[in-house]
Write a protein that binds this DNA or RNA. Structure first.
Lengths: 231, 231
DNA sequence: AGGGAACGTCACAGGTTCGTCACGGGCTGG
DNA sequence: CCAGCCCGTGACGAACCTGTGACGTTCCCT
């Protein structure tokens, strides 16, 4: 269904071949790398549309690869799915903070894999957010020029922080945002604020959004996510 | 679809050629410049309908180019799209304050590019404010030729600054204006004035406008906005 | 089912922002 | 030179915003 190119990074031959098999069968062009260094080089050279990255790699681990990807201009916005073992689940927070777009826990089913891949590719094709004057996500509309927000057609009166919080959640819709990430994005850099404060503002925002409140989903143990409603 | 002329300013040959290619394909006449000085000269000489300006330029950077464009009569109202590297969220604010109309972050897609170009050309084709002799927004009327203002049919006696402030707010109606932006627009270039002074003038203006005062909305923590009452 | 951790909600104090008043300096026209 | 109007600024109270502790509720794991 698609001719997108996907870079798969894993040092275990078994897993690698399973991934390649399923993705190829779905019609994706697949490139592989077996360590961090190779991943970085290939990402840079081939400019894939998506990267699937195992956390456990010999030498440079997945976090470091991800961090370096995010640091380089030409790869900073590439969608990345992290691949983790079940026992590494606690690590998810760390992964999201470094900039992962999604997670898959081993063992995974073929269906789960392709679902996530499709979702992420679809999203990255959506119109970019940062420069849009007017943003619409389901019943929620943001007029960034006027600095106004609407929910189901009616204007909602948001404070500065609430507005900014909504803006960030919309901009990264579909992706979980940890409390720390939200703090960093909404409150200016390293503010000395309790992460629980984020909860409070999410609650206030939800109240004001009315029916649309449920679009802000709580991801237990991690943070919050605005449900992606891509066409 | 259009025979508009676009000036593209970028010093990187790769990006420049990509831009030229896509824009030409859409039917635009494209002119190029590779540095700030050339951009200013060409903008002056060719009077393009739109300028796409990279922020990072050798010598004079994009901000300075933009500032000079805005300073010169013949180029002051040209629509400008800034081209920036990802990452710099802060730069966006700076850019808008200097007078950018839109932003595109690198890397960008062809679709994003043409969408923004079209949107901006469409917008600038709407009746330009600067040449209207008489402006009517709801109950407020500005006779720019006679330099007189009316609210609900009765003339209101405004001082020079009050008139200019109202003019700027009307010109950018619907959009939030920060105190700094208002200072820049109303008080000519970098006056050393407290931003709180703006509040005072808004207050005076509101008093004189009578019932229409509520059309000037306060956006807490940001600035002011004249409510948009389109036709 | 029980217990604990994570999350939602409430209330409130402190801080910030804004509207307004008052005042003085500066400019202008007579 | 004077009166009158503009205009910038400090002061202050009111309204609003916001961070936090406390407590209730939900969820998950064992």
């Amino acid at each position: 269904m698609s001719d997108a190119q996907i870079l798969v990074v894993d040092d275990e031959p078994d897993i690698l071949s399973v991934l390649v098999y399923h993705l190829s069968r779905e019609g994706y062009r697949v490139t592989t790398a077996v360590n961090g260094q190779g991943a970085l080089t290939t990402a840079q050279a081939e400019q894939p549309d998506l990267i699937i990255l195992d956390l456990m790699l010999p030498g440079m681990d997945g976090y470091e690869v991800l961090q370096r990807l995010r640091g380089a201009e030409s790869t900073s916005s590439m969608p990345v799915i992290l691949l983790t073992a079940r026992r590494e689940e606690d690590e998810r927070v760390k992964g999201f903070e470094v900039g992962a777009d999604d997670y898959i826990t081993k063992p995974f089913s073929a269906r789960e894999l392709t679902l996530r891949v499709e979702a992420l590719l679809r999203r990255s094709k959506a119109e970019p957010f940062s420069t849009s004057r007017r943003v619409t996500v389901g019943p929620v509309v943001l007029d960034r020029e006027a600095h106004r927000a609407f929910s189901e057609g009616v204007e909602v009166d948001l404070t500065r922080l609430e507005y900014r919080l909504l803006e960030v959640l919309l901009e990264r819709r579909g992706r979980v945002q940890t409390r720390r990430q939200l703090l960093q994005a909404v409150w200016d850099t390293n503010a000395a604020i309790e992460t629980r404060t984020v909860d409070m503002h999410v609650a206030r925002l939800r109240t004001k959004l009315g029916e649309a409140a449920s679009l802000i989903e709580t991801v237990r143990g991690i943070g919050y996510r605005f449900r992606a409603l891509d066409k």
